[in-house]
Design a protein around this nucleic acid. Structure first.
Lengths: 233, 233
DNA sequence: CGGCCAATTAAGTATGACGTTTTCGTCACG
DNA sequence: CGTGACGAAAACGTCATACTTAATTGGCCG
C-alpha cells in the first residue's frame, strides 16, 4: 500500500473527505460515530479526531443526540487545500476547475501588477529564467518540462506580489495548470502566443511596469478561460 | 460566563488559536500535549482534538517524540475563516486588513462583471434596494445602518457572480467593511462618491453591462485601498 | 572516530466508564 | 381532543488508563 506512514485518523480522513466532497453523502446525511468506528475498524479516538477535522472544514456538523450531519455545499471551506484537492480528484472536477480558473483570472493580474512594484532582483531573475525555460520547452512534446516552468513562473509572480493571501494560491494555480496539461491532448504544443506573453510579463515585472504586467497577465488568464470554454462542459 | 455552550475542545481552540496567530508562540515553538493538558485542566482527548484542528489549519505540526511544533506563517491556511478572524482580532490586524483589502480589489471587480451576466432579477432588486439604503443612510451619522447595507450589497454581488469561490469571500468582505467602520472616526459620513458608485454598479448589473460593472467596482475598491493608505501604517 | 543498537520520550491508539444535551414518546390534565 | 410537562433513551462529549509505535538520543563497541 502507498497508504502507510500516516496516522489512522489521516487514513479515515482520506476516505471520508473525498466521499463527502464528491457528493456520496448528500447534505443532511447523518453518520453515527460507532457506525464509522465499525466501518473503518478503528477506535472512537480515531473517528472523533477525523470528524473534528471534517468539522473544521465545515464539511460536517456534529450535534448531540443526532450524529454527524453533512453540511450543504455552500458552507464548506472551499479554500481548504485538502477540500480543493478532493474535489479536483472527484466527480465535479470540471466545475471545480472552472471555479479556480475564474479565481485565477481575478487574482493573478493584480498579483502581477504588485509583483512589478515589489519583486526583488532575485525574483526577477528567476522569472525570466523560467520564461526562457518555457520558450525552450514549448515545442516538441515536452509538455512535462514546460509545465514545471509554467507552474514555477506563476508561483513566483504570486509570491513576489508581497501579499500573503495571493502567495497561498500558488498551490491552486499549480493544480489548475497541472490539470489542464493532463486533459490537453498530449500531442498539442502550448499556444505560442501564451509563451510570448509570459516572456513579456517577466520583462514588465523586471522593469517595474505594473500596468503592463497586469494587462499582459490578464491576457494570459483570458486565454486560460477561453481554453476552458473549448474543452470543458 | 459567556463561554458556555460549546465543547471544551472549542474553548481550548479559542485560546490557542489566537495566541498562535498573534505570534505569542514563534514558529518552531514546541507544545507538549501533557503540558497543555495541565494548563487547561482538561483531558488528553480534548487537547488532542484541538491540536488536530490546529494541525488542519496548518498552524502546527504534530510529530512523535518531538511534540506539537508551531509552523511558520507562510504555511498557515490563511483562508480559514477562523484564522482570518483571529488575526483580525490580534496584533497584526493592520497588516491583515491590508492583505484582505488587496484581495478584495482583485476579486470584487471580476465578481461584479460576472454578476452582471448571471444575476437573477431578485438579486438585482435586492442590489438596488441596498444601494438605495446606502444613499438614505449616507448622511447624518448613521454609520451602523449604512454598514448593514454596504455589507449586504457586496455579499449579493459576490453571490450573484455564480462562482462559489467568490461567494465564500462574503464574510471576508464583511469583516473588512466592519473593521473600516470601526476605525473610521465615528463622525465622518461615508464618501458621497462611493455611494454614487454603488448605485451605478447596481444599475450596471441590472442592465447586464458587465464591463461597466467591473470598472465601477474597480473604482470602489481603489477607493478602499486609498483609504487604507491614509489610515493604516 | 564512526556507526550501530538500545533506552527513552512523547505522540498515537484502544477501551471502558460516566456525563451531558437533545429529542421523542407517553401520560395526565384542562 | 389538544396541550403541556415529565421522563427515558440516544448519541456525542469527556475522562482516566493502559498499551503501542516511532523517532531521537546517547552510549557502547568495533
Amino acid at each position: 500500500m502507498e497508504n502507510e506512514g500516516k496516522g489512522l485518523h489521516a487514513r479515515v480522513l482520506e476516505s471520508l473527505g473525498p466521499a463527502i466532497t464528491a457528493g456520496d453523502y448528500p447534505p443532511g446525511t447523518v453518520l453515527r460515530t460507532d457506525e464509522l468506528e465499525e466501518r473503518f475498524d478503528v477506535s472512537r479516538t480515531v473517528i472523533r479526531e477525523a470528524v473534528r477535522v471534517l468539522e473544521s472544514m465545515q464539511l460536517v456538523a456534529s450535534r448531540r443526540r443526532v450524529g454527524v450531519t453533512v453540511r450543504p455545499t455552500e458552507e464548506w471551506n472551499v479554500y481548504d487545500p485538502r477540500v480543493i484537492g478532493w474535489r479536483l480528484a472527484g466527480r465535479d472536477r470540471p466545475r471545480q476547475l472552472r471555479s479556480l480558473t475564474v479565481l485565477r483570472s481575478a487574482v493573478e493580474p493584480v498579483a502581477a501588477g504588485l509583483a512589478a512594484q515589489h519583486a526583488t532582483p532575485a525574483q526577477c531573475a528567476e522569472l525570466t529564467e523560467h520564461a526562457m525555460g518555457m520558450v525552450a520547452t514549448s515545442r516538441g512534446q515536452q509538455l512535462d518540462a514546460y509545465l514545471v516552468h509554467d507552474v514555477a513562473f506563476h508561483r513566483i509572480v504570486l509570491t513576489a506580489s508581497g501579499n500573503e493571501m495571493f502567495a497561498r494560491l500558488g498551490d491552486v494555480v499549480a493544480a489548475v495548470l497541472t490539470g489542464r496539461t493532463q486533459h490537453h491532448v498530449m500531442f498539442t504544443d502550448p499556444d505560442p502566443a501564451a509563451v510570448t506573453l509570459h516572456v513579456q510579463v517577466a520583462e514588465a515585472v523586471r522593469t517595474g511596469d505594473a500596468a503592463r504586467a497586469e494587462s499582459l497577465t490578464r491576457e494570459i488568464t483570458a486565454g486560460a478561460m477561453a481554453e476552458l470554454d473549448v474543452l470543458a462542459p
